[in-house]
Nucleic acid binder design. Structure first.
Length: 803
RNA sequence: GCGGAUGUGGCGGAAUAGGCAGACGCAGCAGACUCAAAAUCUGCCGGUGGUGACAUCGUAUGGGUUCGACUCCCUUCAUCCGCACCA
């Protein structure tokens, strides 16, 4: 007989129960575990099955930890500042606050469908003044430490969003948000000195249990390289130019020099005759967008007319400008060694500049140089350094430069300081007041938050001013230091500001006096498990590490890394492409929940594939999970009141099941946990049929194992079994390896590595017995042949090698 | 260009201190139940040959190590991702 379960009724019942009896109640005696999801931006389009995946994953993990006896912190909140709400405001005239609140309500309703054990009492919202008060507070602390500073410089500018962007927000030369080509714009900007933390951000990666891919991306982004700064004096001038090189060993081969078009000395170095050419080149270079500059690999440049002196050869070398040299890396100027650098070689060929080899690949004369040699070798044409290896020369020449005071060993980073101001409305106002007399002055802490004022138009001005600049009665204020009339800073913070420290606030969300209580921080932090997509590898995940280190430095917290363990879940794809509203390929969870229930969908989200890889979505597959749940229902329903004693075989199956589920879960192989449940349930059903029932202990173990995955049905089963309390008040079952062991096992018998038969052997049988049994089994196959070798691997295989 | 990941039936995927490839599920086929359908249950389900027990090939490609390779080493190819003139 088949009894079908009513998922709607069951799920409704237990949701109501959990509302009155939360699963994860406060208990000071329990050890703490903090499991965090990357909080979402509440967009208007709602959740699809791809979003579910990460949330299910972290909830399964949280519930598992509850059953292991932890008190779990599993909060949720909203990263709610950002462009879409603001663009809606511009188009539809709805205040971003209104639109955001509406989207949050939708998101929250949809998240409830997952039945995660979120602690909604700790919900945070980055746009709440009570929250961003502290976002601003951190900025003020950074300002006081000199880590937030103003600078006028050419920055990345998105012409469509009409705002400046951080380096991290430029992806392949385009705006990370809207995809428009990024240009440069000279603007006064607030910057955060993340470069001051470059070394610590790099070194501390080693201690993190994060995916190697993310760590590598961060290492590459920080881009530390060792080298030397070398001074080249300018011929006929009492000045010098500093260059950065990672190859001091090639200094004798430096036959020309190139400056970035934006280099400060370009004007000074340009001779009368070259003026027109140089000015034209600088002009053209400044017009190029990042995309063009990247796509256009053909070398271009202009000669300034001036010469520098190579400090080792004492020969004059021409100074050029070219846009393949970046203004904001190293010193913005390079020495060029065309014989040993591909780019310099290309440039030298194009403009017919001389090429001097200084490293010999192998013995013999160098004929003509047809391509640059970038490897190691023996030094030549390098005066006193001839004959040593180039590897050695790197160190020796750098040391020599230091002794002669014409250079010094140094390091350089690809990481740039963080452009932190945005010329948009919907963000945290930067809490600074500009006073003519006192300069930039932070808003006193007791006056925080500086709240966002109402504006008439949210439209970005495009001039480099934020819409806030138009509200004169907000802008005009007095200097907190001298009391004279002053102006408020009108730029806002980037969306990353609020998310760079939010994980702290969940621990102590209502604290009005400080950002977080020290004792509570000690109790809960850092985060034990952080779950989210990989798209933030060098954005959010870098920024949040920077903020954490800063807060450590000023004594707010006593740890330096926010997330001990990071898990990146793969995307859900449909027809091979990422599921998204704009692609029109989203699958809504609503129908599936209605038809099969939350428990089925939760389990299916895990079953689609390895959680760290992208997985293709197929609605039909959920049927299998649904059938599985019904099978368990029947098994439990038919045996609910069973008082049967477990047979040895049943007990063995139980321990094997606990072992398999637990170890797979611990390794995060969640797709195989689900298949494991199916496999063992099938075995239990077969055995129950054979033995006329199943014992209570095995049933209870199965129910507890299922609880993190299918919580509603697990509670229902628990109740069916006659237990009074919640299944989540139980403890995770443990296995006994002794009781898992089979007393008879099947072994494959191979001839020359090919399986020809199988034999059943008992635990007590020794090598000789097994081998003779095997040989009997394959006797007619090896008749007349000579046995060369016999391989016996206990419990695994027998291989008879014959000739 | 550099770096990384991935490649197994019609499909999603199992199996790595080297040891019976295809677990589990989807789809499909056949049967049972039914007036019928759905649901459920049972069986089959990589290719080729054979009525058949069986033989043979088979984990992107070609080679190597080994008694034995999806797993280790080398070659090539394809797809995806990251970085991209960082001196």
């Amino acid at each position: 007989m088949c009894i079908k379960y009513n998922h709607e009724k069951v799920e409704k019942k237990w949701r109501k129960y959990w509302e009155e009896n939360p699963v994860n109640q406060e208990d000071p005696s329990k050890p703490k575990y903090y499991c965090l999801d990357m909080f979402p931006y509440p967009s208007g389009s709602g959740l699809h099955v791809g979003h579910w995946r990460g949330y299910v994953l972290s909830d399964v993990w949280s519930r598992y930890k509850v059953l292991q006896g932890y008190q779990v912190l599993h909060p949720m909140g909203w990263d709610a500042f950002g462009l879409p709400a603001e663009n809606d405001a511009i188009q539809k005239g709805i205040h971003p606050e209104v639109g955001t609140a509406r989207n949050i309500a939708t998101f929250k309703r949809q998240l409830h469908e997952i039945s995660a054990i979120y602690d909604w009492d700790r919900e945070i919202n980055t746009t709440d003044p009570e929250y961003y008060k502290w976002t601003q507070w951190i900025f003020v602390q950074m300002f006081k430490k000199g880590l937030a500073y103003e600078k006028e410089m050419p920055i990345n500018w998105c012409p469509s969003c009409k705002t400046g962007l951080a380096n991290e927000e430029v992806v392949n030369g385009s705006c990370e948000r809207c995809g428009s080509g990024v240009t440069k714009k000279n603007l006064r900007q607030w910057m955060l000195k993340i470069t001051a933390y470059a070394d610590r951000l790099l070194e501390d990666l080693d201690q993190l249990d994060w995916p190697e891919k993310v760590k590598k991306m961060q290492r590459d982004w920080i881009g530390k390289s060792y080298g030397a700064e070398v001074d080249f004096t300018i011929e006929g001038m009492d000045k010098s130019i500093k260059v950065f090189t990672t190859r001091p060993d090639t200094l004798y081969g430096a036959t020309f020099m190139v400056l970035a078009p934006e280099h400060a000395m370009v004007k000074e170095l340009t001779t009368e005759g070259q003026k027109e050419v140089v000015e034209q080149y600088v002009q053209t270079a400044s017009m190029k967008s990042s995309v063009d500059r990247m796509a256009d690999k053909e070398k271009t440049g202009a000669f300034t007319g001036s010469y520098a002196i190579n400090p080792l050869t004492q020969k004059p070398i021409p100074i050029w400008i070219a846009d393949y040299v970046l203004a904001d890396y190293g010193t913005g100027a390079i020495m060029c060694v065309p014989a040993h650098d591909e780019r310099d070689f290309e440039f030298a060929k194009k403009f017919n500049l001389s090429i001097t080899p200084v490293i010999q690949k192998e013995e013999g004369d160098i004929q003509e140089i047809t391509e640059p040699y970038t490897g190691e070798g023996k030094m030549i044409n390098s005066g006193q350094f001839n004959g040593i290896s180039s590897e050695e020369a790197k160190e020796v020449i750098a040391t020599y430069l230091e002794e002669q005071q014409i250079g010094k060993k140094t390091v350089s980073y690809k990481l740039r300081d963080w452009v932190f101001s945005r010329q948009r409305y919907w963000g945290e106002p930067i809490p600074i007041i500009h006073c003519e007399k006192c300069g930039a002055t932070p808003v006193p802490e007791h006056q925080l938050p500086v709240t966002l004022p109402e504006v008439e138009s949210y439209e970005p001005t495009g001039t480099g001013e934020s819409p806030l600049a138009a509200i004169s009665d907000w802008v005009l204020t007095t200097c907190p230091r001298c009391g004279e009339p002053a102006r408020r800073e009108t730029n806002t913070m980037p969306q990353w500001a609020g998310s760079s420290w939010y994980y702290l606030r969940y621990v102590d969300p209502y604290n009005e006096k400080e950002i977080i209580d020290k004792d509570k921080a000690k109790e809960w932090l850092p985060v034990d498990m952080y779950v989210g997509g990989i798209e933030h590898a060098v954005l959010h995940l870098l920024y949040v590490r920077f903020y954490t280190k800063f807060l450590y430095d000023i004594g707010v917290i006593d740890f330096e890394e926010p997330f001990t363990f990071l898990f990146n879940q793969g995307m859900i794809t449909k027809d091979g492409i990422k599921m998204s509203k704009s692609k029109g390929n989203v699958v809504s969870p609503d129908d599936l929940v209605n038809r099969y229930g939350c428990d089925s969908l939760r389990m299916y989200e895990l079953f689609v594939g390895p959680p760290e890889l992208d997985s293709e979505w197929d609605d039909r597959g959920i049927e299998g999970v649904y059938r599985f749940i019904n099978k368990v229902w029947n098994l439990i329903a038919e045996n609910a009141t069973s008082k049967k004693e477990a047979t040895e075989e049943m007990e063995r199956l139980r321990h094997q099941m606990i072992y398999e589920i637990t170890t797979r879960l611990d390794q995060f192989n969640l797709n195989t946990v689900v298949s494991g449940f199916m496999e063992y349930t099938n075995k239990l059903i077969d055995l129950a049929k054979k033995e006329g029932g199943i014992d209570p202990e095995t049933m209870d173990a199965l129910i507890i194992l299922l609880a993190p995955f299918t919580p509603h049905i697990a509670e229902e089963f628990w109740e069916m079994r006659g237990h009074k309390n919640s299944v989540f008040e139980q403890t995770w079952p443990i296995y006994d390896e002794e009781k898992m062991k089979e007393d008879r096992i099947e072994m494959a018998v191979q001839i020359n590595g090919k399986v020809r038969d199988t034999i059943t052997v008992g635990l007590e049988e020794d090598k000789e017995e097994v081998l003779s049994k095997a040989k009997t089994a394959i006797a007619d196959r090896i008749q007349g042949k000579t046995i060369v070798k016999e391989i016996y691997v206990p419990n695994k295989i027998i291989n008879i090698v014959v000739k």
